[in-house]
Amino acid sequence: MSDGFTAEGGHGAVPTAGVETGEGKPKRRSWPLYEVFVRGKRGLNHVHVGSLHAADDEMALHNARDVYTRRNEGVSIWVVKADDIRASSPDEKDAFFDPAGDKVYRHPTFYAIPEDVPHL
């Protein structure tokens, strides 16, 4: 009867077709993206727990405490601007990546996305 909705859209069925996806070009400038690494307790490595947006490093650290640790004291947090992370690619043969474009969290915008193409 309908092929346009998936229940596994999380909180409830959402349409899977006829919805724009975006091109990585917001109308307004947004705060930069930061990646957050947390050392849960002494003796452990910092591990990546997620990301957030912040205008500057201080705000990123503050927000990371609020969002990812609920201000748990004794926890060590690193925040790193996503743009500053350089990484190797698991698939270097990947033709879509610029040879120097090795920023793992750069949120690449290498395709222009045609909108409203059904059944893709």
Binding site: W31, L52, H53, A54, M59, H62, N63, D66, V67
Partner: peptide, 8 residues
Amino acid sequence: PELEEEVA
């Protein structure tokens, strides 16, 4: 004004 501030 932003989701991070919602949480804070």
